[in-house]
């Protein structure tokens, strides 16, 4: 169980060591002390390991993650788990802007709040935020599920494609082409699974509302031709 102290080892050396791990490594549980908000901690990992960061992480923590479980025992800066492909990232505190941006897969769990643009351009990731999310979240989100136990800020789901947005609290406003949709049994099933995966107990999928794309922006509208 390697224990790395970023007051001693450089982050570059830590990341190089993580990148060098073979898929069958026995070093499957890493701890990282004194992160002090450093950027790109455990970015680009591609191995079935667990990395526990014992403090606040800076920008792009666990970015591009594949297969690894990265746990942040603190807050995470801009772009946590951005472009994640698979695996799991768990932020025990709050996340800054653009959490889970452009990510293709895996599960991002945020115990606290996420600020603006959570899930921007998400492409298949599942995101569960136990608190609230900031404005312009899920902007141009393409695929995946965004689950919010608290409230959502302004312009949720602006210019949304096919991502599903589930919000339990209030939505300040919906962005262009984002509408509320019916919760059908298949959506309840998805929510139940994600809530269970994220370790949320005592919350029913029935407490959420679903939002998605009205698909009005998919194609060029011929009525607008005269504008050019």
């Amino acid at each position: 169980m390697p224990a790395v102290d970023l007051a001693v080892m450089t982050k570059r050396d830590l990341n190089a060591a993580l990148h060098a791990l073979p898929a069958d490594t026995n070093e499957t549980h890493w701890t990282v002390a004194n992160p002090e908000g450093a950027h790109a901690i455990a970015a680009g990992v591609d191995a079935p390991i667990t990395v526990e960061i014992e403090g606040h992480a800076g920008y792009y923590c666990a970015g591009m993650n594949q297969r690894a479980t990265v746990i942040v025992h603190g807050n995470a800066g801009v772009g946590v788990a951005e472009n994640m492909m698979s695996g799991r990232v768990h932020v025990k505190g709050d996340a800054s802007q653009a959490a889970g941006a452009t990510a293709h897969g895996g599960l991002l769990v945020i115990d606290g709040n996420a600020s603006a643009r959570c899930g921007i351009s998400m492409k298949g990731i599942d995101i569960v935020v136990k608190g609230s999310i900031g404005p312009m979240s899920a902007f141009m989100a393409q695929a995946g599920n965004l689950v919010v136990l608290g409230d959502a800020g302004e312009a949720l789901g602006d210019s949304l494609y096919e991502a599903r947005l589930f919000v339990r609290g209030a939505v300040k406003s919906l962005g262009a082409d984002c509408i509320e949709k019916d919760m059908r049994p298949e959506h309840v099933a998805i929510l139940d699974r994600l809530l269970a995966d994220a370790g949320v107990a005592g919350v029913s999928a029935r407490e959420f509302r679903r939002y998605g794309s009205a698909r009005g922006l998919y194609n060029f509208h011929v009525d607008n031709a005269s504008a050019y």
């Binding site: 908000g37 800076g58 800066g77 802007q97 600020s115």
Partner: peptide, 25 residues
């Protein structure tokens, strides 16, 4: 649209602002 980053810390003794958390460590 909060284009530029900002993070703050408040205690009984001070209010602090940093573009990034690192500045507050």
């Amino acid at each position: 649209i909060s284009c530029k980053p900002a993070v703050m810390a408040e205690t009984d003794r001070y209010v602090a602002f940093g573009s990034e958390y690192r500045a507050l460590v």
